[in-house]
């Protein structure tokens, strides 16, 4: 049976679209007396309600985006960036002006996050990465911001650049360790501070065994 294919008015003269909107928007009937006594209206509503219930159910149904969506998009974007302007790669974008805090401007005020906060987050993550023995507190790179415990943080607005001096355990593949540190540190800075880490440069200054 196809209940609503006849016309756009019920035999009682009520417009079908009004009833549909009433059900869809959960509105009160404009003419409650008529609707409660009219056979046609009641029959139409009895059909519309379960029908719209299904729409609502479908709206609540969980949708899971394909797992590769983000990676595919970012791969395309990075390929495009490399093609267009290789000199703009983030790792080469060295911060020209140093500040000691990141400044986030919101609608209801601003927030400053000190560089020592970011540095602590970075140190913790780097040390927790398998293969990293220590950060090299001895060396410092005076060209960039403040260095403490082998980490240098520079910030501009909501972007962070970090330089790390790593001591890696002998036997661990250095490229793999460096990649892991970059991933963990980037993720931690993003989630803990809400800032987007742009550049994480690393220097392996030493290797150590047991």
């Amino acid at each position: 049976m196809k209940p609503f294919q006849e016309g756009e008015h019920l035999p009682c003269g009520v417009e079908l679209v009004g009833l549909v909107n009433q059900v869809a928007e959960d509105l009160r009937p404009p003419d409650p007396e008529h609707q409660s006594s009219c056979e046609h209206c009641r029959r139409a509503l009895a059909e519309l309600e379960p029908m719209w219930g299904q729409v609502r159910e479908l709206a609540r149904q969980e949708v899971i985006p394909p797992s590769a969506l983000v990676a595919t998009v970012m791969q395309a974007i990075r390929a495009e960036r490399t093609r267009v302007s290789p000199e703009e790669l983030p790792l080469r974008e060295i911060v020209p002006r140093l500040v000691e805090h990141a400044l986030l401007l919101g609608e209801r005020g601003s927030l400053r996050i000190g560089d020592s906060v970011i540095a602590q987050v970075i140190v913790r993550e780097a040390l927790a990465t398998p293969g990293v023995v220590a950060l090299d507190a001895g060396a410092a790179s005076p060209r960039f911001g403040k260095s403490s415990h082998g980490v240098t943080v520079s910030m501009r607005e909501s972007r962070v650049s970090a330089q790390l001096l790593l001591v890696v355990e002998i036997g661990w593949p250095i490229p793999g360790v460096v990649r892991d540190v970059r991933e963990r540190v980037g993720q931690a800075v993003r989630t803990i501070t809400g800032l987007a880490a742009v550049a994480i440069d690393m220097t392996v200054t030493d290797v150590r065994g047991e």
Binding site: R159, I192, G194
Partner: peptide, 21 residues
């Protein structure tokens, strides 16, 4: 602290792919 879309958009507009991600 979570950066809102506005900050991420601003960073992404400055070619920050991580913010865009």
């Amino acid at each position: 602290l979570v950066a809102d879309d506005v900050h991420l958009v601003r960073a992404a507009q400055a070619s920050d792919a991580v913010a865009f991600e």
